[in-house]
Structure formats: structure tokens, C-alpha cells
């Protein structure tokens, strides 16, 4: 019975599983070159294979791992700077978490805390897009998140194991899959003039800020400006209800 449900896709939960696996495939494609690069970078920075892999297992945050490895390599090991840098690089997850929190409010707290560990840009993008287009599903979020996590670790392992045999994975062109996927998730959401304005402002501010600000600050700046304008334009309209 379960097998026939699985094949026909009738069961709601099975549908969520299929949707999650189908949707995270292109994200996974984009994650692989970054994971391999992370593995190679760890070895280049004189970290052991085990240390590099454990960093992917426990930290699971691409940008802060790259920066952390670079800092270790440069001999910067002050606790204050490590904490502050990690905090600043991941600050955007505070905004993403706030946006997902109203959907997760009904889940038991241990499950919320478990899902929080896997909150990455990619998992957030897929989950929130699904929530807007269909409905929020913790099963969908769980599968998408754990798939990306597993692929990230396996890609780091591949980078550690095959590092010297692989040319720079970021030149393969596969990393283009990630922003392309974000674009596909975004386009169907742009249904009214306010969302188009907000999107336009976010894109312009983001591109401009990235030219002048270091690291991921452009994300924070664009988020604050564009969402505030969106909130003001929306006021007490129906979307806010």
C-alpha cells in the first residue's frame, strides 16, 4: 500500500518528500563545488582532513567556514575576532529565521531547535518559497535541509580526499546553478507591483552595496532597506493580515 502510494504520489507526505527531493536537486548541484573547495582549502591551510570534515559537520555554514579557514591559515586565532567574524558573516540568518519563525511556531520546540541547525540560505529559500506557493511543511524543510547537509559533508570529504587531483571546482560553472535556482524561486512570487518594487530595490541596493562593502554586509543592508520600504508600502493591506 505504501509502495503504491509512493509510486502514485497520492499520499500528502509522500508528495512533500518527492517535492523536497525534486526541488533540492539543483541546489545540491550548486553546493558540490563549494563543498569540494572547502575541503581543498582546509588542507591548504594546514588543517588535517579530520578537522576540515568536522568543521563541515558542526559548523555547516559555507561563508563562515571559508573565512574561518582563511583566518586559521593566517594565524588569526583570537577568540574575540573569531566570534565577531562568525556572528557578522551569519547575521543574515537572523533575518531568515525571523521570517520562518511564524510558520514554525506550532512545532514542538525540540523539533524547531533541530531544524534551526540546518538553516542555510539554500534550505531557507526552498522552504519559504514552498510555504508561499503551497504551504509550510516541516517534512519538506527537514528533507531539503538534511539533503543539503549530507551533500555538503560528502563534497567536503571529496575535497579532502581528492584535493590534489581536482582543479579549482569553482571554475566548473556549476556554482551558477545556485543563483539561477534562487531566481527561479523568486520569479513566481512577483505577482503584484509592491513585490516588483521591493525586488527592484533589493537588487539595486544589493549590487551597489556589494561594490563598496566587505563580506556579506550587502545582504543585511539590502534586506533592511527593501523590507522596510515593502512594509511601508504594504501598510495594513491584505498581505500583512
Amino acid at each position: 500500500m505504501q509502495l503504491s502510494n509512493l509510486i502514485s504520489g497520492k499520499n500528502e507526505q509522500v508528495e512533500e518528500v518527492w517535492a523536497a527531493l525534486r526541488d533540492c536537486a539543483p541546489m545540491v548541484l550548486g553546493v558540490v563545488p563549494f563543498g569540494i573547495t572547502c575541503g581543498i582549502m582546509g588542507l591548504t591551510a594546514n588543517m588535517s582532513g579530520l578537522e576540515t570534515i568536522l568543521m563541515s559537520v558542526f559548523v555547516f555554514a559555507g561563508a563562515s567556514q571559508f573565512i574561518g579557514i582563511s583566518m586559521l591559515s593566517a594565524g588569526i586565532t583570537g577568540w574575540g575576532i573569531i566570534i565577531l567574524t562568525t556572528l557578522l558573516v551569519n547575521l543574515r540568518h537572523l533575518i531568515m529565521g525571523s521570517s520562518l519563525a511564524p510558520y514554525m511556531i506550532k512545532l514542538p520546540f525540540p523539533l524547531q531547535a533541530f531544524l534551526a541547525f540546518f538553516l542555510t540560505d539554500e534550505a531557507y529559500a526552498l522552504t519559504i518559497s514552498r510555504s508561499y506557493k503551497v504551504r509550510y511543511s516541516e517534512l519538506y524543510q527537514l528533507i531539503v535541509s538534511t539533503m543539503i547537509y549530507l551533500v555538503w559533508i560528502l563534497a567536503t570529504l571529496a575535497g579532502v580526499g581528492l584535493g590534489s587531483y581536482i582543479s579549482d571546482p569553482l571554475t566548473w560553472g556549476l556554482d551558477f546553478a545556485m543563483p539561477a535556482t534562487f531566481l527561479v524561486l523568486l520569479i513566481p512570487l512577483l505577482k503584484d507591483h509592491i513585490s516588483l518594487i521591493v525586488f527592484g530595490i533589493a537588487a539595486v541596493v544589493s549590487v551597489s552595496a556589494a561594490l563598496y562593502l566587505p563580506g556579506k554586509w550587502y545582504i543585511i543592508i539590502a534586506c533592511v532597506i527593501a523590507t522596510s520600504i515593502g512594509g511601508l508600502l504594504e501598510g495594513d493591506n491584505k498581505n500583512a493580515q
Partner: peptide, 11 residues
């Protein structure tokens, strides 16, 4: 409500 639009745009 607009956080997803903006985060997807900036990503």
C-alpha cells in the same frame, strides 16, 4: 512578509 522576496533577490 517581504523578507523572502528580498533575501531571494539579494542571493
Amino acid at each position: 512578509y517581504y523578507v523572502p522576496y528580498v533575501t531571494l533577490a539579494v542571493m
